[in-house]
């Protein structure tokens, strides 16, 4: 019976996936339990899956001394994610529409222009000079998302959704007198909705997780995002632990508490961890739809 075979296969798949998920889950559990343990126990016995000497002190400590920074970090992250996603989806879909518009003569030229930046870049220094000296993006909120407005890969992804929309639909609209703006907003966007959701999610995740732009362009603490605060802390710990500190003065500085590090990790991951289960089906569906029709 093929059905039985399938069943055995299915069971083994489920077991394999289940085990794999458990393995992936372990670091998270360690982080959560570590953040709920007492510092002395962690120092003495190391991490464990269940909190050692359960306490909320670490969170209490972080929120008593750093509430303002953490709240501001969250606010900045949310702002950057929302604004960044909205703007970049607009720019990306518009670009994708242009390079798929059949009547547009230079569409291949523009497609190549975008493609070219995937292969070659001017390097970090020219990028930095352009961003700070010419566009003055340093220490501004805009600087935290403008450089990422067009992700070429996602733009091509969106272009593929647009291509999958039958050209006749556009033609009939044109016959009815619709211009490009109308076609774009009234026909292409609604019909390319699945792609839209997918790229929005990708963008949102990218903006939420980004620490590179704040690192490069922001020194004002008021603009720190939660990810950057996290990166900042980790980078300092790593540097002090690597012994490089000896080069400039032989300092051994007490690194931040282990539990604080983990608590910070939990705070950063929390929103994504909460939202992801509800959103991830769009990722999968979005990519599949594109691949079949593309």
């Amino acid at each position: 019976m093929p059905y039985k075979e399938n069943r055995a296969l299915l069971v083994s798949f489920y077991v394999a996936i289940g085990l794999f998920s458990l393995i992936c889950l372990v670091p998270f559990v360690l982080a959560v339990s570590g953040s709920l343990s007492t510092e002395a126990k962690i120092a003495a016995d190391g991490y464990s899956l269940l909190p050692r000497g359960f306490t909320l002190d670490t969170y209490r400590f972080m929120f008593s001394s750093k509430t303002e920074q953490i709240v501001r970090g969250y606010a900045n992250s949310v702002m950057v994610t929302v604004l960044g996603t909205a703007c970049s989806v607009l720019v990306t879909t518009a670009y994708a529409y242009v390079i798929t518009a059949k009547g547009f003569r230079y569409r291949n030229f523009f497609a190549f222009l975008a493609y070219f930046t995937m292969l070659f870049s001017g390097g970090t220094l020219p990028w930095y000079i352009l961003s700070t000296k010419y566009y003055h993006l340093d220490d501004t909120l805009a600087g935290l998302f403008i450089p990422y407005l067009l992700n070429v890969f996602l733009m091509y992804l969106q272009a593929n959704y647009f291509r999958s929309i039958p050209h006749e639909v556009v033609e009939s609209a044109q016959m009815d007198g619709a211009g490009h703006i109308k076609i774009f907003f009234r026909i292409m966007l609604p019909l390319g909705q699945v792609g839209l959701v997918t790229i929005s999610l990708f963008y949102a995740l990218q903006f939420w997780n980004d620490f590179y732009l704040p690192l490069m362009l922001v020194t004002d603490e008021k603009l720190f995002t939660i990810q950057y605060m996290m990166y900042y802390m980790m980078a300092n710990i790593q540097f002090l632990a690597s012994g490089n500190a000896a080069r400039i003065g032989g300092a051994i500085v007490a690194p931040p508490l282990e539990t604080a590090k983990l608590a910070m990790t939990c705070l950063t991951v929390l929103p994504i961890a909460v939202l992801y289960p509800f959103l991830q089906r769009y990722f999968v569906r979005g990519i599949i739809v594109g691949s079949v029709k593309g």
Binding site: A235, N236, Q238, F239
Partner: peptide, 29 residues
């Protein structure tokens, strides 16, 4: 007074700031 994480010491953003001609002072080895 501006602050960067230690990862940018002796390279990284400090290098970019130097190479792009910004005005500042910082420690060195």
């Amino acid at each position: 007074l501006t602050y960067l994480p230690w990862s940018e010491y002796g390279g990284g953003k400090t290098d970019l700031m130097l190479s792009s001609g910004e005005e500042f002072a910082a420690y060195t080895d």
